[in-house]
Amino acid sequence: MRSRRIVSRALLYLVLIVGAVLTLFPYLMVVLTSLKTAPQLNSVSPWLPAVPGTLSNYIRLFNGKIADISFLAYLWHTVLFTVILTAGQLVFTTFAAYAFARLRFVGRDVLFWAYLATMMVPNVVTMIPLYLIMRQIGWIDTWFGLMAPYILGSPYGIFLMRQFFRGLPADLEDAARIDGAGTLTILLRIFVPLSRPALGTLTILTTVFAWHNFLWPLIITSGDNTKLVTVGIASLQGNLGADYNLMMAGSFVALVPLIVIFLLFQRTIVRSIVLTGMK
């Protein structure tokens, strides 16, 4: 029995190690490629480090310009986009989820499930209609057009918060109403403080989505004053070929903020994954 337990545990660790290697290998390739020169990229195996390594790609990335703007400007655009989008998602999603979970009005459930059904439609399908709408109202290549499809909430976020609100005891709300609290007071003073785990989950998911968003920013933006870092990295691929060393340096710089967030909020991220699975 003991030998079987040892063998099963050894197989389990072997599977976990193989999974970890497969997961981390693309990130390792990004780092190794960013530390190579163009000749080393073609002469050294992709999974081997260059000797000696070089930081020239990072120097070119921060000292040079992509089109007519610096890479730091793209990073700043992405930070601004992520912060505003996350704040908008938290505010509007919370209000909508509370209405669907606690307020009573005609057609509430039908409206909720109809809105939730939009999750079945791939985002790619709605890109062209969204672009045509933005063109009609003059929001092409503007911050309003960039944020409009996401800032007012998402079906998944509203579903997550609604399910969490529905799980809170109704006695808390009844007691608050007896004390004279209104709907807004109940939401802000009772439900929101109790919903920190769900709000943490939504914050993490929205931050990662906003930071990695590529297709819609690529379609809606054309000027350098509204481009995000993902589109900026793609701009390094020109008509004469791609500068893979520079692209990998930019990709690694774009990954650093998310790595820092993961290291600082490991427990919150794990808790959010557990909460997402339970809900």
Rank of each mutant, 00 (worst) to 15 (best):
N123V: 06
N123I: 07
V125C: 12
T126W: 15
P129G: 09
P129D: 06
P129H: 13
I133K: 10
M134R: 06
M134P: 01
G138K: 11
W139C: 04
W143I: 08
F144L: 09
F144C: 10
A148T: 02
Y150K: 13
S154D: 06
P155Y: 00
Y156P: 04
I158A: 15
R162K: 14
Q163L: 12
F164E: 03
F165W: 06
P169S: 08
P169G: 09
A170T: 03
A170C: 03
D171P: 11
D171H: 13
A175F: 03
A176V: 08
A176I: 12
R177M: 08
I178T: 13
G180M: 07
L184I: 13
L188S: 11
R189Q: 13
R189T: 11
I190P: 09
F191I: 08
A198E: 05
A198L: 11
L199A: 13
L202S: 14
T203R: 14
I204D: 04
T207K: 07
A210M: 05
W211E: 14
F214A: 06
L215H: 02
L218P: 03
I219L: 11
T221V: 12
S222H: 04
G223E: 02
D224L: 06
D224V: 11
N225P: 08
T226Y: 09
K227V: 01
K227F: 01
L228R: 02
L228K: 05
I233Y: 13
I233L: 15
I233Q: 07
S235P: 01
S235F: 00
G238P: 03
G241Q: 00
Y244T: 02
N245A: 02
L246G: 04
M248K: 06
A249F: 00
A254R: 01
L255K: 02
L258A: 14
